[in-house]
């Protein structure tokens, strides 16, 4: 009689586990999606000109904001400053955030990133962060090169000179 008790305890406890692990979250834990069109990985960007930036952001619920950051990657990932100052150039650093609230999908295109003429040429990282309204964050990292010889992306640059942001809400 005691044994029969045990025999039904086993399946009972098994049920406990497998029923318990199927529920998902109440809140939004889905990250926003970044698709960065320009610049591409490995792109060379010309010192002394602006950068053609184009990306699509989307989220299952509501977007929050995005941030663009460019920092040097001269020696692996050491942000060494001292070594490059001597030549009279400054390592380029850019960081700016943009609001995307109230949108689920956004197409972004601008030329806010201007590389000054005294920027140190070399390897840089381009990081695009995006958050949604709930605080989920995604990140896309690209390796880029800053040089004096790189070609400027004219084909889009001139068309949108006066139109720095164009958000299309779907």
């Amino acid at each position: 009689m005691k044994k029969s008790f045990v025999f039904y305890m086993i399946p009972l406890s098994l049920c406990l586990f497998f029923s318990a692990c199927s529920d998902d979250n109440d809140a939004d834990t889905v990250k926003p999606v970044i698709s960065l069109h320009e610049p591409e990985d490995g792109d060379e960007l010309r010192i002394g000109s602006d950068v053609h930036f184009e990306a699509d952001f989307s989220d299952n619920e509501m977007l929050g904001s995005y941030m663009v950051e460019i920092h040097n990657n001269f020696d692996g990932h050491d942000h060494k400053v001292a070594a490059t100052r001597a030549e009279g150039s400054e390592p380029f650093f850019f960081k700016k955030s943009y609001d995307l609230s109230g949108q689920r999908n956004a197409h972004v295109h601008h030329h806010d990133i201007v590389i000054p003429a005294n920027a140190t040429p070399g390897n840089y990282h381009l990081m695009i962060y995006c958050t949604d309204a709930a605080g989920n964050q995604s990140l896309v990292a690209r390796s880029i090169v800053l040089s004096h010889e790189a070609e400027h992306h004219h084909e889009h640059g001139e068309e949108h000179d006066d139109e720095h942001h164009d958000h299309h809400e779907d």
Binding site: F17, F18, C21, D23, N25, T29, G135, N136, Q137
Partner: peptide
């Protein structure tokens, strides 16, 4: 079992 109950950014 799979863990689908996660916090933000997990």
């Amino acid at each position: 079992a799979a863990q689908r109950r996660v916090c933000h950014n997990e």
